[in-house]
């Protein structure tokens, strides 16, 4: 894992500049297209360490794609992604930047944890093994150590009593909480949530939202694609409103939910009845 050592060697003028300290995620002029479809049309965004940013907007606006660019599950055609002071998806060889090899990319991805809409737990592994699997297979720690940590993480999401259950034996809410613990096991600097509750009914959503809220309080940097207006309002530090591949508006919940917010944002939130957040 070789992060470009930007400040120590002379660089061409166009050499990317490391974000300011205190910025956990920075996206610069990000573009992505599938064939003739432009999904992201120049995204600039900075997320401060320890804050939660909610990405909202109509479906098809590019929120999920944006999130997937942060860990390069989707590959942008242009622009830069910085996570924890490291340029994601590129590697430096001989003073030049190249697309990162899969190996290097794996290192980059370990700095972010991702939680999916459909949980995506490993179906053949118990809850505990799901959480312990990645650290062991990446060679980060011993099996015993990983299991001990996994056990603690499952306790943190309130699932100590379900350590040995298979994903098929867990409710959707429990599965999603295991998925959060699994992502945390890699000790990521940033957590990405991709509509983590939209496959769950309100009851189960609440238990997942509670875990997310606890994470935010504990100082995790989070980037959350969500339809939960209540969560965005009460937990997020920033709300980013996207439409048609662009960030249309951005601000604190107070401004975004106020009458001063752009009309487009107001009408969007009006059409969504406010859901209760976990508290």
């Amino acid at each position: 894992m070789s992060a470009p050592e930007i400040h120590t060697r002379p660089r061409p003028r166009s050499w990317p500049q490391r974000p300011d300290p205190g910025i956990a995620v920075e996206l610069r002029d990000l573009h992505l297209s599938y064939g003739a479809h432009d999904i992201l049309k120049g995204i600039d965004l900075a997320v401060r360490e320890g804050t939660t940013t909610a990405l909202v907007g109509p479906s098809g606006s590019g929120k999920t794609t944006l999130l997937r660019c942060v860990n390069y599950l989707a590959t942008p055609v242009a622009g830069e992604v910085w996570v924890d002071g490291e340029l994601v998806g590129r590697e430096e060889r001989g003073g030049r930047l190249y697309p990162a090899s899969e190996r290097v990319l794996r290192g980059h991805r370990r700095r972010t944890g991702m939680v999916f809409q459909r949980f995506n737990l490993f179906a053949n592994l118990s809850a505990l093994a799901n959480v312990a699997f990645a650290p062991v297979s990446a060679g980060l720690c011993s099996r015993a150590e990983a299991q001990e940590r996994a056990s603690a993480l499952l306790a943190r999401v309130g699932l100590s009593h379900r350590e040995n259950a298979l994903p098929s034996q867990l409710s959707g809410g429990q599965q999603q909480r295991v998925a959060i613990a699994r992502a945390l096991a890699m000790q990521p600097k940033v957590m990405l949530f991709d509509e983590a509750t939209s496959a769950l009914d309100p009851e189960l959503s609440r238990e997942v939202l509670a875990v997310m809220q606890e994470l935010a309080r504990a100082g995790m940097t989070m980037l959350v694609v969500t339809h939960e207006t209540g969560f965005a309002r009460t937990v997020a530090d920033d709300i980013v409103f996207m439409e048609a591949g662009r960030i249309v508006s951005q601000g604190s919940p107070e401004t975004m939910f106020s009458d001063d917010a752009p009309e487009r944002v107001q009408s969007f939130f009006r059409r969504r009845p406010q859901t209760d957040s976990a508290s």
Partner: peptide, 8 residues
Amino acid sequence: EAARALGI
């Protein structure tokens, strides 16, 4: 996808 995101 989960495995990719976890860097496994």
